[in-house]
Design a binder for these strands. Structure first.
Lengths: 137, 137
DNA sequence: TCCAAAGTTGTAATCGTTACAAAAGAGTAA
DNA sequence: TTACTCTTTTGTAACGATTACAACTTTGGA
């Protein structure tokens, strides 16, 4: 598994304390956090961290392809470390987001109806297993 | 083709001038507009229309299943009249949104990994046919 | 005609995000 | 070291989309 430093170097991103911590957080916690969640999580150990830095850093990482930005049924953007393609499921009861490893048709980097596809997102919504069990539906 | 009045009645939504106009706009113009776009488009012929009414109405329609809310790579919600399932493609150059009638695996109303799926969105992003032709790529 | 419920409106507030300019840090050459 | 430049970080203010809320209007029975 590549280290944070290696990932930054491979993607021509100069390392800094802020960048290392932010990427480290996203690699460790697969919770699809928002910019604000990341800021809140890191604010304790980095008291001078600015929210703008979090936004700037997430933008840089996303442009370089290190992260993927997700638009999942809400008006905030969520981020995840860019790994193997997978489906997202968001629960309408508890708002939890699940990664599903289900096969699906990939149009990534292909032509579809004359359009050149560079990103492919499959987003499901419904009631998650855990919430279904709670109410016995 | 069902009329606006019929659609409202079928979904237990009391008809009003505002609701009829808003739903009519979405049935006529397949542009996946935002709440603000709808407001701007109708403001001329309905000078007393409030933006809050547009938001309220879109919420009602979406809850009843008359409309579908789309989260397509941006921090605003877009709406479309709920018809046959299809894929969305958004161009990163011109921001235009295309409806693609391509077959794909439907998980709608099915169980996936123990989760009950009620909505299934496939969102593609890339460079559209028209923009590709412009720059000769 | 009166009343209650439903729908609409305008304003203010909130939330996520971006713009911007100043400050801090890092690298390089003299 | 010093001087210089480029990059990164920071805080504040501004912005755009959306929601909260209370007042006003409309509607459909009794």
């Amino acid at each position: 598994m590549r280290s944070i430093m290696e990932i930054l170097k491979e993607n021509d991103i100069a390392p800094s304390m802020q960048r290392i911590k932010i990427l480290g957080y996203l690699k460790n916690y697969k919770t699809h956090p928002t910019a604000d969640m990341i800021y809140q999580a890191l604010a304790d150990e980095m008291p001078t961290l600015s929210k703008t830095t979090v936004y700037n850093t997430l933008k840089t990482f996303t442009e370089k392809g290190v992260l993927v930005a997700l638009s999942l049924f809400g008006n905030e953007v969520r981020y995840e470390y860019n790994t193997a393609p997978h489906i997202h499921f968001k629960c309408i009861r508890c708002d939890k987001i699940y990664d599903l490893d289900i096969s699906y048709d990939h149009y990534n980097n292909e032509m579809v109806d004359g359009h050149k596809v560079t990103e492919h997102h499959v987003n499901l919504r419904g009631i998650c297993k855990s919430c279904l069990e709670k109410v016995g539906e």
